[in-house]
Design a protein around this nucleic acid. Structure first.
Lengths: 237, 237
DNA sequence: TTCATATCGCTACTTGAATACCGATAACGA
DNA sequence: TCGTTATCGGTATTCAAGTAGCGATATGAA
């Protein structure tokens, strides 16, 4: 009797167990980063939690929150669990602690300073954006290359000439910059900012910034969501 | 002699072959949607391809493009392959055809009309955004609830009272709307727009819009990239 | 007091995208 | 003319994230 065993494909063996989402994930945030999609959903959760607390809720259940936001309840629960606050059956998560934990995870628990570079129409609009204070972010200075703008005050922030930027950023120890300059000027500005100690840049220009390791750039590109939208409309139309 | 065969985990069998990235993917776009990340990268590619064409390049190779944008060459090649234009060894993809194909995939090959709702500071800034014309998008009308703004002209677009919105959107057969109204007003505006025939909404408010099936909403939430940024800074700091 | 149940927290599975790898081929230089 | 090689186009693998299912448990009602 002969026995033939043919492996068409090797069975998949998990050497490492799949990532488990539990409170311990927060014990050492250095080695347990939050999933990126989770981080992006946190601000949305924060708003909803705030509204529910204003309405007098002391506990937030994942199912109620999910329904309110149109998300999957399980996904929501995992996100909330990552914050490290234990929930209670039939009640949910304690609202105050949950909000505090999420804010802590995002670094929004203590005040952060930022500068804005480029006080054109978009930059001016951002100076008036109310949402920043919810995130404990204050724009301490604005800069613009145009000497005509320099000296004016937009939404309570004085606009200074670009030449002062490096010195002021270094002196105020600002680590975050919002870049709303024309694409052609973006790379040079970024280099000056990094040189002066900036560690994170919110880049509204369409330039692909190249920065040294350790500096984080987040691009806000209007064309991207527009592409998703028009692609979907073109397909379904 | 006894033989024990123990299956600790069943081998994974691919009933369907893994999605292969080839020219045929574009044959029937209805059933072969592009991966979302690819769609989001396309606008970035388009800009770079345009610049390279301006510099006289007739062919675009994935490796050169990837280097320019700081992306993985393989990933870039897959994205370009999805556009359906065959490339040539040692040359790359024909620049003009490639650009046309990507524009077609995004629905940017023919002119599209849009309306802007909410002519506040952000709305005004968007009316001046030069990038829209690269995407063949023209904002044909702007609306605002504030009667003081209605009647004025911002960046060449006349601002009209909100009451005229439904009628005008229906008459002009506009399918795309840019929503820059305060959060409290967003849901009501969205419903009016959808009722009037709008199929896609670029939502800059922080409201979670609920819309009927078939209508696509893309949220542009400034807090999200900011969350990613400050989380990363908080971790590495 | 007891029971029904909403919700949590965990494990397992599926899906989608990124990455690795490699043979085929056309352009280029010797 | 002929080898070298950059680049394409395809398959397989790995990884991250979303989804499913289910036992445990505290709450609130009977």
């Amino acid at each position: 009797m002969k026995i033939f065993i043919i492996f068409l494909s090797l069975p998949k063996v998990y050497i490492q167990p799949p990532l488990w989402y539990n409170a311990r994930a927060m014990e050492n945030p250095r080695e347990n980063p939050l999933p990126l999609p989770t981080i992006r959903r946190y601000p949305i959760f924060l708003r909803a939690i705030g509204e529910m607390m204003d309405a007098g809720e002391a506990f937030i259940s994942s199912s109620v929150l999910a329904e309110r936001l149109g998300l999957d309840p399980v996904l929501t629960r995992k996100d909330l669990a990552m914050a490290g606050v234990p929930g209670r059956p039939r009640r949910g998560y304690p609202a105050g602690e949950l909000r505090a934990a999420i804010n802590r995870a995002l670094g929004w628990d203590s005040a952060t300073d930022a500068v804005l570079v480029g006080a054109g129409s978009l930059g001016s609009a951002l100076l008036g954006y109310a949402g920043f204070k919810e995130q404990n972010l204050s724009i301490v200075a604005a800069f613009d290359a145009n000497p005509r703008l320099a000296g004016s005050t937009v939404h309570g922030v004085k606009v200074r000439p670009l030449a002062e930027m490096a010195r002021l950023v270094r002196r105020l120890k600002v680590h975050l910059a919002i870049l709303t300059v024309p694409t052609a000027a973006a790379q040079a500005c970024a280099e000056t900012l990094v040189e002066a100690g900036v560690r994170g840049i919110l880049n509204f220009s369409s330039a692909q910034l190249s920065v040294p390791e350790g500096v984080i750039v987040q691009n806000v590109d209007l064309a991207q969501p527009l592409a998703v939208l028009s692609h979907a409309i073109a397909r379904h139309g």
